[in-house]
């Protein structure tokens, strides 16, 4: 672990010193325990970077902030970003959607044996995750750990799906009722980058601005649908939700649908085109 941290610092220092990148996005120790995102512009600051089993954040989401030049007339910054295997699929999604430029992005991939929460418990997505090496990287740090992966039984999802429709609806209405419409789920999501979200239009075309049902319900279903075939399952939306909405359930349901129907897994390969760009005339897969 410390070894990985050391290598991240060395890599960052070198990239910045040699002028290969303008910024390295990684993790620093948080005063509140755990780690938090850090932005390093100077090789001398690379010391701040750390690695930890608490490095849960998907830093690829910050690449959207780096699409524009810092000052008018300049080129956009060249950015290096530290990614775990799950985050690395975000890089591919953003490349496929034309959001980032490969030549301006240096991917520092880190092998991963699973992240933990504050209490030290493995994150739900990590328990079943079989991806131990990033799918795209320029620099790879760490060696793929040899860990047992529990087969994904989707028990929680199966439980909800087994409910009769009225109970299933009641379950979701009950959950979404807690939503405070803080939009943290959307803001943290690397796949949510519309300039104006359809749920925040000033004409209230789809939902009005009220923090009420059914607007909250429509927002969450709409958001999930917009991410079908694009969500990489980083679970950041569920992590950041202050009300603990089980958004992971929705995302996995849609990801499974897309995989079953089209054999498509978001961000699996660097050359993978977005699912909806590739549907044939008969709705055939890739």
């Amino acid at each position: 672990m410390n070894d990985i941290g050391q290598k991240i610092r060395e890599t960052a220092r070198q990239l910045l010193q040699e002028g290969q990148v303008d910024c390295v996005i990684g993790y620093e120790a948080s005063p509140r325990g755990g780690v938090r995102p850090a932005f390093i512009y100077d090789a001398g600051e690379a010391e701040r970077l750390v690695w930890s089993t608490r490095a849960v954040h998907n830093l690829a989401t910050y690449l959207h902030d780096k699409k524009k030049p810092a000052r008018r007339g300049e080129a956009p910054p060249r950015v290096a970003v530290v990614v775990k295997p799950c985050d690395s699929r975000t890089i591919n999604v953003l490349l496929a959607e034309g959001q980032i430029e490969r030549e301006r992005t240096t991917v520092i991939g880190v092998t991963c044996d699973g992240m933990v929460d504050e209490s030290g418990a493995p994150l739900p997505r990590c328990v079943h995750c079989a991806e131990r090496t990033p799918v795209v990287y320029d620099v790879l740090i760490g060696s793929p750990p040899d860990v047992d992966v529990a087969a994904d039984d989707d028990a929680d999802l199966a439980h909800v799906e087994a409910l009769p429709p009225t109970e299933r609806l009641a379950f979701w209405l009950h959950e979404f009722d807690r939503c405070i419409r803080c939009y943290a789920c959307r803001q943290v999501c690397p796949g949510c980058y519309c300039t104006t979200c359809m749920f925040e239009r000033d004409d209230g075309l789809w939902v009005d601005a009220g923090v009420e049902m059914p607007g909250k319900y429509i927002f969450h279903l709409g958001r999930a649908l917009h991410l079908a075939g694009r969500c990489v399952g980083c679970d950041e939306c569920e992590r950041v939700c202050p009300m603990g909405l089980p958004l992971r359930l929705l995302n996995r349901r849609l990801a499974r649908e897309v995989e079953t129907l089209y054999g498509y897994r978001a961000g699996r390969e660097e050359t993978l085109a977005p699912l909806l760009f590739e549907l044939g005339e008969e709705g055939s897969p890739i």
Partner: peptide, 16 residues
Amino acid sequence: QRHGERCLSCRICTYV
């Protein structure tokens, strides 16, 4: 700059 760059522009802090 240092504190703000991490910000997600969500509304949690203001709503709580």
